[in-house]
Lab assay of single mutants.
Amino acid sequence: LRQRHVACLARSERGLGFSIAGGKGSTPYRAGDAGIFVSRIAEGGAAHRAGTLQVGDRVLSINGVDVTEARHDHAVSLLTAASPTIALLLEREAGGP
């Protein structure tokens, strides 16, 4: 079961505080899956403080732009754009009992 949710992050002077992996033109985060995933969350960064991202979340869109088939460098450029806030649509595998 997959759950979707939106995370809104305000960029700090240190950026957004998370890294992505995967996407076309880069090493897959999961074998056989060209999706883009949250690969790291920086301690004390914007994403960590927001508490809405988890490592392993699939990134579906960035500020309304679909990145499900995107190249890695395109997703990075969307994240590093000048916008002071970033809205992410994420998909998470629902774990637990």
Rank of each mutant, 00 (worst) to 15 (best):
C8V: 14
L9P: 02
R40C: 11
R4N: 06
R14E: 14
L16W: 11
P84S: 12
L1Y: 10
L1E: 14
K24E: 12
S77T: 14
A46C: 11
I20M: 08
T85N: 11
D57S: 01
G15K: 06
T52W: 08
R30S: 08
G32C: 10
R30D: 08
T52A: 10
E43C: 09
T68C: 06
S26N: 12
S39K: 08
R2L: 06
R40G: 14
N63L: 00
V59S: 00
A21R: 09
G56W: 04
A81N: 14
A34P: 10
A10N: 13
K24C: 06
L16I: 09
Y29A: 06
R58A: 03
S19T: 15
R92D: 00
Q54Y: 06
R40T: 14
G96D: 13
A47F: 04
A94Y: 12
G23E: 02
Q54L: 10
G35Y: 06
S77P: 02
T27A: 08
A94M: 13
H72P: 05
L9A: 03
R49D: 13
H5Y: 12
E93K: 10
D66G: 05
I41R: 01
L9W: 08
Y29R: 05
F37E: 02
P84E: 14
P28N: 13
A21C: 12
C8F: 14
A34T: 15
L53G: 01
V65P: 00
C8E: 12
A87E: 15
V67Y: 02
T68M: 06
L53I: 15
R92I: 02
A81Y: 09
G25T: 04
L79C: 06
G44F: 07
G22Y: 02
E13T: 12
L53F: 09
A94K: 14
V76F: 07
L78H: 03
E43H: 11
S77E: 14
V6N: 08
S83H: 10
N63R: 01
E69M: 10
S26Q: 09
S12V: 09
L88E: 00
R40V: 10
S12P: 08
L16F: 13
A21N: 06
G15I: 03
A7G: 04
A42E: 13
A47Q: 06
V59M: 05
L60P: 01
G35L: 00
E13M: 05
H74R: 13
K24F: 05
A82G: 13
A94G: 14
L9C: 06
G45F: 06
G95K: 12
L90H: 03
F18I: 09
K24W: 11
Q54W: 05
V76S: 09
A50C: 12
G95T: 13
S39P: 02
T68Q: 10
T27N: 11
A31P: 15
E93Q: 10
P84C: 07
A7K: 04
G51A: 06
A70D: 05
R14S: 09
R40S: 14
I41H: 00
A7V: 15
Q54R: 13
T85Y: 10
R40H: 15
P97L: 11
G17K: 02
L1Q: 09
I36W: 05
G95R: 10
Q54G: 05
I36L: 10
G51S: 07
L1G: 08
G25P: 02
H74E: 14
G22H: 01
H72D: 03
R30I: 14
I36V: 08
R71G: 11
V76C: 10
G64R: 04
R49C: 13
A10P: 09
G15M: 05
V38Q: 02
V67R: 00
A31M: 14
V55T: 07
A31F: 15
L1H: 09
D66K: 04
R2T: 11
S12Q: 12
A46P: 14
R14Q: 11
R2E: 05
L88M: 10
E93Y: 07
A75H: 03
S61Q: 14
T85Q: 12
D73T: 09
V6C: 11
E91G: 03
G51F: 01
R4Q: 10
I41T: 03
G96W: 09
G44S: 07
L90D: 04
A94F: 13
D66R: 05
R58L: 02
L79E: 03
A42N: 13
R4I: 08
L60Q: 01
L88S: 00
D66M: 05
G51R: 07
S83A: 14
L1A: 07
V38D: 04
R30W: 07
V6A: 09
A87Y: 13
A75C: 08
F37D: 03
V76M: 11
E13Q: 11
P28L: 06
P84A: 12
E91Y: 03
D33R: 08
L89Q: 13
R4Y: 04
G96V: 12
K24S: 06
S83Y: 10
A87S: 15
A21S: 14
R4D: 02
L79R: 00
T80S: 15
A70Y: 08
E13I: 06
G32L: 05
K24G: 13
V6D: 05
A34C: 09
F18T: 01
